[in-house]
Amino acid sequence: MKKLFSPALIAAAALSALATSAYAENPMVGGAPMFADKNIVENAVNSKDHTTLVAAVKAAGLVETLQGPGPFTVFAPTNAAFDALPAGTVETLLKPENKDQLTRILTCHVVGAEAFANDINKMIADDEGEHPVKTVGGCTFTAKHDGDKITITDENGSVATVTIADVDQSNGVIHVIDKVLLPKM
């Protein structure tokens, strides 16, 4: 009987299936696949829901940092979250003279550790319902539950909900949120 498949072909097919299934576990964001072997910036630039965030990261000079080894947890506001800010806010923040303020706001969306939803849920439970989240920008936000969703309350009392959790990256994890988190100014 003639062999239809060589062991090498079977092994290659198995590896391909494993690679595909690993990618399939990551949620789509902004209509784009997110790949666990790409860094935060490499994935974010493909999301049509995060063009404002990407422009802000570039304007703040944070691209190289977010391409670094991390690990990082990024709470990534959508375009709609930026659009909900008062008229003219984004345009003003993107001006070169406001780079420091923009950098502070953006780095208040970044934690210097990798925390998936299960990790955050455990921290909230361990802290009896509210967990302080210290960011690389010097902000302290509060993680809580709203039903089965994770929420993040900023220093001004505004509440963002995690709408897409656990977007695995080579240098951390992204959680998509529906509001821009703002530090006390």
Rank of each mutant, 00 (worst) to 15 (best):
Val74Ser: 09
Ala76Ser: 11
Asn79Thr: 02
Phe82Thr: 01
Ala84Arg: 01
Ala84His: 01
Leu85Asn: 07
Pro86Leu: 01
Pro86Thr: 01
Ala87Gln: 13
Leu93Trp: 09
Leu94Glu: 06
Leu94Pro: 04
Leu94Asn: 05
Lys95Cys: 04
Lys95Arg: 08
Glu97Cys: 05
Glu97Arg: 13
Arg104Tyr: 07
Arg104Ala: 15
Thr107Ile: 08
Cys108Ser: 11
Cys108Leu: 01
Gly112Glu: 10
Gly112Thr: 04
Gly112Ser: 15
Ala115Ile: 04
Phe116Asn: 02
Ala117Met: 08
Ala117Pro: 10
Ile120Trp: 02
Ile120Lys: 03
Asn121Pro: 02
Lys122Pro: 06
Met123Pro: 00
Met123Ser: 09
Ala125Val: 10
Gly129Lys: 09
Glu130Cys: 08
His131Ile: 01
His131Gly: 05
Val133Ser: 05
Val133Thr: 06
Thr135Met: 09
Val136Ser: 08
Val136Lys: 02
Val136Thr: 13
Thr140Glu: 12
Thr142Gln: 14
Lys144Cys: 09
His145Pro: 00
Asp146Leu: 15
Thr151Gln: 03
Thr151His: 08
Ile152Ser: 07
Thr153Pro: 06
Thr153Trp: 03
Thr153Ser: 08
Gly157Phe: 13
Ser158Lys: 15
Ser158Trp: 09
Ala160Thr: 05
Val162Gln: 14
Thr163Asp: 04
Thr163Asn: 12
Ile164Leu: 06
Ala165Ser: 14
Val167Met: 01
Ser170Gly: 07
Asn171Cys: 11
Asn171Pro: 13
